[in-house]
Every structure is written in C-alpha cells, then in structure tokens.
C-alpha cells in the first residue's frame, strides 16, 4: 500500500500560505501528472479559487473539477484529519495549511504513527516585508522561530515588497539558522507544484518546463544499482541548493523510492520493478549537468 505524502504549509498569519495553496491546487491537473490533493485549510473564507475550477461546494468542503478537495479544519485539526483518512478513495496527497500559531512539528507527528502516511515536508513561509516585525513579536517570536526551525523548505514570500538589502539580510539570517535547508522566493504563491509537493509518478518522472521558467535547474538520469546510503551521502553534500529529488531505484537490498524535500530525505521500500529514474531540481547554484552526471555516475553499482 503506497503511503500518502503529507505536506505541511506553515507560516504566520498573512504570509501567503493560502495563496501558495491555491496555486498548488490549480496546478494539480493531468498536465502535472494529475494528483488528487486533499487540502485542509484554516481560513476557508480566504481561499480564492477560480469559480470555473469549482465543481461543488457544500458545508465546509469544496470539490474541484481536477479531483482535488479543500476542507476546513474548523475547530479541530485531528478530527478533520480523521475524516480525511476515512475517505474512499484516499487522496494522492494531503496538504495541511497550518494555523499561524501552529507548531508544524506537532502536526508532522501524525505521519509518524500512521502507516498510511509519509511526511513529505514542512514548508515554512517567511514574509520578507514583515520578518523584522514577526521575529520580534512580543508574544509570537518563539513560535515564529519554531516554524522556521521545523522547515524542510523555506519560502520567502512578498520579496517584491522588501528592498534588496532587507532581502539579502533575511536570506543570510535564514541561511545561518538553517544551513541545510534550501530557500526560494515566491510571489503571489506562484511556484511549480512539482517543486513544492514533489515529483509525481513512479515510472515516468516528468520534467516540466515550469521548473525552468521559474529559474530552477533540473537534472534527470537513469541510475543502476545505486546503494541508498551512498546516494543520500551525495545529496547531503549538495545541500542546500537542492530543493527536490526523487528516484525509483534498486540496490543490493532491493527496490526503493527516495524522496528529497529540501532538508528531509526519506527512503521507502519499493515493491514493483524499479525503473531507475532519478530527478533532481535545484537552484542555479547547484552543480551543472556535467558535474551532476559525474557525481551520480560515480560508485553507481558500487
């Protein structure tokens, strides 16, 4: 039984969590591999989904034409979560838009005790225009720091509202706090779905143009008999420039799927015949294709 990836979008009130979520939901169609996402949101009223995309709306649930569902967390995250896990069929991916004061690591814990779930990543948004206020908030500063601490991917929102020096200082500050975690800027929530939620599909991993359009780089290859420990060691060296990687691979122990989501690398046994596909998406600072080719070919079949 494949595990459902769980993505937690965290960040202060007003940092652009809902914009990002809206963008992800609208991209979930077949053009990106097609995945039925169930999103649990805090502020239902703030969702701004194109009316054309909405198939049905009742109570605290919106169904989209592309198969995604959006539901309100309402009073109790656990209760809504239980409801989602009782759906048939189960969704392909679950996104939780955490409240502005939630500790994302607490929510992530659900995946640790549910054999049907896999924590894909905690994505934390940092508002470039308000970081200096949020990080000094008399009541919430510690909470803010915890959200950044828990992140596997840091997204700097509203970069257009901050001046260059502020932005540079913020990036430096975050890089010091979380040296292994990649950062990317996001304006109005517009980021490629494959970057935020990971690459979909086990056999044919798509290479969408959108990744390149957003200024990211991608390398894909076929890896034969790649020991998982060796691959993880290579990926750890490439931090923090790698945002995403996925491979459906084989080594002496058998088939495995590897997911890299920013600072989090996980592997899980793969029951089918591993295709050997491997894709890595990163920032322009990542080594170029020729260098990556060398890195990943080395001790293949070791």
């Amino acid at each position: 039984m494949p595990q459902i990836p769980l993505t937690i979008i965290s960040g202060f009130l007003g940092t652009g969590k809902t914009s990002l979520l809206t963008h992800l939901l609208t991209q979930a169609g077949p053009e990106n591999g097609g995945r039925r996402i169930t999103a649990m949101v805090n502020d239902f009223g703030a969702l701004n989904i194109d009316a054309e995309l909405i198939a049905a709306k009742h109570g605290n649930q919106i169904s989209l034409a592309n198969g995604c569902v959006c539901c309100s967390i309402g009073d109790d995250l656990m209760r809504s979560f239980m409801e989602v896990m009782q759906q048939t069929p189960l969704p392909d991916h679950i996104i939780i838009e955490a409240s502005g004061v939630a500790e994302p690591s607490r929510i992530a814990g659900f995946a640790a005790v549910d054999r049907q779930l896999r924590l894909d990543s905690i994505v934390t948004l940092v508002d470039a225009s308000a970081h200096n206020v949020h990080s000094k908030d008399p009541y919430l500063a510690d909470n803010y720091a915890k959200q950044i601490e828990a992140a596997h991917l840091l997204l700097i929102s509203k970069p257009d509202l901050a001046d260059a020096a502020t932005l540079e200082n913020l990036e430096k500050e975050l890089a010091t706090q979380k040296p292994d975690v990649p950062m990317a800027q996001v304006t109005h929530g517009a980021l490629p779905i494959n970057l935020v939620l990971g690459l979909n599909g086990d056999h044919e991993i798509p290479q969408p143009q959108e990744i390149i359009d957003h200024g990211f780089v991608q390398w894909a290859g076929h890896l034969n008999d790649m020991p998982r420990a060796a691959l993880i060691a290579k990926l750890e060296k490439l931090r923090p420039h790698v945002l995403r990687a996925k491979g459906v691979l084989q080594d002496g122990e058998g088939g495995y799927v590897l997911h890299l989501a920013g600072g989090l690398i996980t592997t899980a046994p793969y029951a089918g015949e591993a295709s050997g596909h491997f894709v890595i998406i990163g920032k322009p600072q990542m080594p170029d294709a020729a260098a990556l080719e060398r890195i990943f070919r080395q001790n293949e079949a070791a």
């Binding site: 209760r79 239980m82 814990g109």
Partner: peptide, 18 residues
C-alpha cells in the same frame, strides 16, 4: 504525547475517543 497519541489510538482502534 499530545494529539499524536490520540490520533494513533483512534486510527488504530477506530474508536473516536474525543
């Protein structure tokens, strides 16, 4: 600890403790 425990208990037993 916390909600995680209740989530696990409810998912594995099917009983809604809360």
């Amino acid at each position: 600890l916390g909600q995680l425990g209740y989530y696990m208990a409810m998912r594995t037993t099917g009983i809604n403790l809360l």
